[in-house]
Amino acid sequence: MDAIFKALNDPARRALLDSLRATDGQTLTELEEQLDMSRFGVMKHLKVLEDAHLVVTRKRGRFKYHYLNALPLQEMITRWVHPFLQPHAAALTDLKAQLEETSMSKPDFIMSTFINCTQDALWDALTRGDIVARYHFACQAARGTMQAPGDEIAYLRPDGAPMLSNRVIAIEPKTRIEMVFLPAWGDDTTESRCVYLVEPTASGMKLTVEHYDIPAGQPGIGDGWTRFLSGIKTFLETGEAHRFFPEMQA
């Protein structure tokens, strides 16, 4: 928590977060052009943001891309701000990920969280439909498992119709799952691609979601991932299911 407050206590770092909120996945050069400071100065500010887990990076070829990771801010707001707000005011503080269509060579969206659990427990929660249905914000039933290429989990509406499906493209047991992301809501049901990265740390597990090739006609995916990660974290750390419904459904 101290690292987050330190990271936010500088106008240059806040400007970097605002820039990534507007256009995610920028290079150091792109960010440097927006600030009146040296390249080394921008690098130092980005390092502080990375240490606070507010920015995550991915390297593709010669370039390193920077992404806003809003989840630590959401957790800070939930703990320190929401309890002091009236429900109608709290709704105004919800963090919405700003998605922009970019090239296929890098993710359109990245988000990470840290979970106090075992690797086996996290893996089961990601790959077993019966467990996913206990914490997912938008469905209370899911069928299937994801253990091998071609496996699929189908997220179901109350009437049993599909809402979303994830089909495995490639898998590294307990480490990485690459999936087809096929929505069944709204006007655009174009497939995209997402990845779960599972990493042990000294004090628990780190879970990262990468989403590629997001169509412009599928808004709200970033907000959905925020609710998904908050749900799985709460479930694994408390043993209790809590669904972070969108406010209109709460």
Rank of each mutant, 00 (worst) to 15 (best):
L17K: 02
H136K: 04
V56Q: 04
G150F: 10
T201M: 11
F5M: 11
L236F: 04
F235S: 07
E33A: 14
Y135M: 05
N69C: 09
R128A: 07
G220P: 01
S165L: 10
T57Y: 00
D108I: 01
E101K: 15
A52L: 03
E100D: 12
V81W: 03
D130H: 14
F84P: 00
K44G: 02
I131G: 05
P219K: 11
T113R: 01
S203L: 11
K47L: 06
D24R: 08
V209G: 02
D24W: 00
R60I: 00
S112L: 11
G231C: 03
M146D: 04
L99Y: 05
E50S: 12
L95H: 07
I232C: 07
H211K: 09
V198Q: 10
F245G: 07
D188G: 01
R14W: 05
T234C: 09
N166C: 10
M111E: 15
K47G: 02
A121F: 05
G25Q: 01
I110S: 06
M43D: 08
L68W: 11
L236S: 03
H242Y: 14
V209Q: 10
A91D: 10
F109V: 02
S192M: 00
D2P: 06
V180Q: 06
L207D: 03
H242Q: 15
L68A: 09
Q34S: 07
A15W: 04
A170H: 14
D130M: 07
I4N: 08
R243K: 13
A142G: 08
T175I: 05
F228E: 05
I110W: 01
N116D: 14
